[in-house]
Design a protein around this nucleic acid. Structure first.
Length: 848
DNA sequence: AGCACGCTATTTTTT
DNA sequence: ATAGCGTGCT
């Protein structure tokens, strides 16, 4: 008997193309097994399971039932995930069409596919392995009609989303001061991430009601224009599953194994989405839910600020009655002192699922702690230490400097730049986010869908063709009045403006007609020429880089490939040979750099998305690398957040100061369960520490330039939570302004020309500023007061002086006022806040 | 249409 | 300090 009946046909389907494409081929191999009775363990493919430790082995070979894997940092998480997939396939428990593996980032998905392809003798690219959003896209392309979308719907990135929101606010004639586009955009995205439509939201007060109205109007606008934002991809897929039992049943029967990476980072909607695909225990008539294999680490949950719910882990455990919780605690990355530090630190968090990393590698080097007088001195020290490591034979790319906030990179970059030390900063503009690329994509999108108003507005007058803001406004009014797109409304305008606009739409039409039947490369080349983009940048002084990027876009199109079929039958096709029915030979050697996507066929007709539409989808879902200075062996600079998932021989964690790390803003979010904000900061520090293989350095500075002013800082409380035995304090005894590092740095700074050509670090998309509250942790020191810095007021104190108070502990003097019995001092006690003290009463002992 | 000035905000980020 | 953005001027 087969416990797993073949998937039912989709409603109104039965079109042969559906199965031919392999998109939804039911897995016949399943029918020889009963997945609910664990199959006898077959002979293991040679080498596949070799060298797994007992816990890894247990996880990889778990029976087909819901499981939670608590995978500590460096415990071989990706290996377990990929080996399990390979094992499931090779033991014949499931076919390549019967499982789904979900990650958060394209990078992780690619890594998984890459590793799998080395484990399995066939092409794995056609499988349902990808990011949440990538899989949603695939799903919606198959069921676009039922989802109420046009077949070639476009995807908005966060920039597009913001401008779309701006247009809505303008159209509603609302005050942008009261309804800040960024905040509104964030509100809409978070509502969607919570699974909520406008009708599900409270409208208690006027402000809230208007916000919901904007949300509704934004939805209508997106629907009219045929575009979806990132959150919409998830929400629309979820609702489609929820509201269509036949679709739901189809996919629930199909995917018997669902593997989820970084489960601790899932938000509410993503968990709901997973439950839809897996089925909820007890709610399925006589069926078992899919075997969800959730891999995560609650100690590495650092994205609560963008909606991640660590609670999904315990919810999953409870709701799916997980019997198998496996902890991977053996660390293969770091030496003992590093792990001891990580363990001791994270032990200060409450409500952990509980995990302790261990290694057999021995203690290794101590964790080195450096106290510096200024951020300049800290940067200079970093440079010298890096030079020493490099002289000792360590590759620069194996060394990383981590910081809590992007603003910290500047001073470090200056020091490295002036010394000629190659470095690479993560976090700049991504390829597909560059202005010239967005312009080019806008033209391409208009040929696919002229009603895409976002794209229309972006390029209607770029390059300049005499269509001013006034004309555009008239056009928008006409469009609004008739409820049609800008493109459709051009005819309604007369006069000179109407003529020029008609010229633009004619250009779009010409482009669409002229590129029909051309290859992707030819389409893009034609567009670059006809739009005038290339010419525009040729005449620009700074246009050379932009032209190179546009050429790179042509290359990306050239390398664009789709995958057809599953497993052994899968072939990679250059996208221009994918006319339905044609089969091309696999690309020679299947280069790793290839940008592979799916054919994205319609579930009913099997009709494949045009190469151009598929490419545009790809561009939207994968913003591309941000390697500004790739190639060279360079020191890696990044925030702690972006370091997650990476590892280096030597790691420098900088700026360990109260208010900065842990960050002041995080300390506000105290909930019933404790100080959630602080605990997330601690997890962040835990992530930072566990990036290091051999050497770990942690530094902090007494003073730091922030927002143009010097701030006096107290060292981070996290130092108190590290095991003294694992540490080595390497700060030179004698320090201070005008001596040592600070002075050396000053000279280097004056000599150098400053950091030219470095990558801009500022980049904010969902984050919203909290109401401005003056930071209490490191009050800026007014210039007038600074004069008193060197002056002694009779109490042996000066500004910047370290002091000790019996109740508040260590602090730094920020300001001094009055003399004699009246003398007062403002002291920053870090976590205990900033206080004014009467020096006649308070017992302050100078330290250092 | 393009530039200059002034204002504002400055934790973390992927898709 | 400084970058990005909106407004207003040439």
């Amino acid at each position: 008997m087969s416990a797993l009946p073949p998937s039912p046909p989709l409603p109104d389907s039965g079109h042969p193309a559906f199965a031919d494409i392999g998109f939804d081929e039911p897995d016949r191999r399943d029918e020889t097994h009963d997945p609910h009775e664990p199959p006898a363990r077959p002979a293991l493919p040679a080498g596949l399971l070799a060298n797994l430790n007992p816990e890894q082995y247990a996880a990889v070979t778990l029976a087909a039932e819901p499981a939670l894997i608590l995978a500590g940092a460096g415990s071989g998480k990706t290996r377990v995930l990929t080996t399990r997939i390979a094992w499931l396939l090779q033991t014949g428990q499931i076919g390549p069409g019967g499982l789904m593996a979900v990650t958060f980032t394209n990078k992780a998905a690619k890594e998984m596919v890459h590793r799998l392809s080395t484990m399995l003798p066939y092409n794995v690219r056609g499988m349902w392995i990808g990011t949440f959003h990538g899989l949603c896209n695939r799903f919606l392309r198959a069921h676009w009609k039922m989802a109420g979308l046009p077949q070639s719907f476009q995807i908005l990135d966060s920039g597009d989303t913001l401008s779309a929101v701006k247009r809505v606010i303008k159209a509603m004639k609302l005050d942008e001061e009261r309804f800040v586009p960024k905040q509104v955009s964030w509100f809409i995205a978070s509502s969607k991430d919570d699974g909520k439509r406008p009708k599900d939201l409270p409208t208690d007060d006027g402000q809230a009601r208007t916000m919901v109205e904007i949300y509704q109007a934004y939805e209508d606008q997106c629907q009219r224009e045929g575009v979806v934002d990132f959150a919409e991809l998830m929400l629309r897929s979820y609702e489609l599953m929820r509201d269509h039992p036949e679709i739901r049943e189809h996919y629930q029967r199909r995917f018997r194994h669902i593997l989820v990476d970084e489960f601790q980072d899932t938000n509410r909607l993503q968990y709901l989405w997973l439950k839809m695909f897996a089925g909820t225990p007890g709610a399925l008539a006589g069926r078992e839910p899919a075997a969800v294999f959730a891999v995560g680490d609650d100690d590495q949950s650092i994205y609560a600020f963008r909606g991640a719910q660590v609670g999904n882990m315990s919810d999953f455990e409870r709701e799916y009655r997980v019997r198998q919780v496996i902890k991977l605690e053996r660390n293969y990355r770091s030496f003992g002192n590093i792990l001891d530090s990580a363990n001791a630190l994270i032990a200060h968090n409450s409500r952990r699922l509980g995990k302790n990393l261990r290694t057999e590698a021995g203690p290794g080097e101590p964790v080195r702690i450096f106290e510096s007088t200024s951020d300049f001195a800290e940067a200079q020290w970093l440079l010298e230490e890096l030079q020493q490591l490099h002289r000792g034979g360590m590759a620069r790319s194996e060394t990383a400097i981590l910081y809590r906030s992007n603003a910290q990179s500047r001073v470090i970059e200056s020091a490295l730049f002036n010394a000629g030390m190659p470095y690479r900063v993560y976090g700049g503009l991504r390829f597909f986010e560059r202005a010239e690329i967005k312009h080019a994509l806008a033209y391409l999108r208009l040929t696919e869908n002229p009603n895409d108003d976002t794209s229309f507005l972006r390029v209607v007058n770029f390059p300049a063709r005499g269509i001013g803001a006034r004309s555009v406004e008239l056009l928008q009014d006409a469009a609004r009045a008739s409820g049609r797109s800008l493109y459709q409304s051009v005819g309604a305008l007369g006069g000179a403006a109407g003529t020029k606009l008609a010229g633009f739409t004619a250009l779009v039409d010409r482009l669409r007609d002229a590129t029909r039947g051309l290859t992707l490369r030819e389409i893009i080349e034609r567009m670059l020429d006809a739009s005038g983009l290339i010419n525009f940048y040729r005449t620009e002084k700074e246009g050379q880089d932009r032209i190179e990027n546009l050429e790179e876009l042509v290359n990306a199109a050239e390398a664009f490939v789709t995958i057809e079929g599953f497993g052994k039958d899968a072939v990679a096709l250059p996208v221009d040979e994918t006319a339905p029915g044609t089969i091309a030979a696999p690309l020679p050697g299947e280069p790793e750099a290839v940008a592979a996507v799916d054919l994205l066929p319609d579930a009913e007709t099997g009709e494949i998305l045009s190469p151009l539409a598929a490419f545009l989808t790809h561009a939207a879902l994968e913003a591309g690398d941000n390697q500004a200075q790739a190639g060279q062996d360079a020191v890696q600079l990044m925030t702690v957040h972006s370091a997650k998932g990476l590892e280096f021989d030597a790691v420098f964690i900088t700026g360990l100061e109260e208010g900065l790390f842990p960050h002041e803003n995080s300390l506000n979010s105290i909930s019933a369960g404790g100080n959630e904000g602080l605990e997330e900061e601690r997890r962040l520090m835990y992530v930072a520490i566990t990036r290091a293989r051999q050497r770990l350095y942690i530094s902090f500075s007494q003073t730091r330039m922030l927002h143009g002013q010097t701030r006096y800082n107290v060292k981070s409380r996290f130092f108190d939570e590290l095991p003294e035995a694992a540490l080595k304090w390497i700060t030179p005894k004698q320090q201070g302004f005008g001596s040592g590092y600070a002075q050396q740095y000053q000279q280097a700074w004056q000599r150098g020309s400053g950091p030219g050509g470095m990558v801009g670090a500022g980049r904010n998309s969902g984050w919203q500023p909290a109401p401005a509250a003056p930071p209490s942790w490191a009050a800026p020191v007014p210039a007038a007061m600074r004069q008193s810095a060197a002056k002694d007021n009779g109490h042996g104190l000066r500004q910047g002086q370290g002091v000790f108070h019996t109740k508040f502990g260590e602090g730094v003097v920020l300001t001094l006022e009055g003399v004699g019995a009246d003398a007062r001092a403002q002291v920053n006690f870090g976590r205990h806040g900033t206080k004014w003290l009467a020096l006649a009463i308070a017992k302050l002992t100078p330290i250092e």
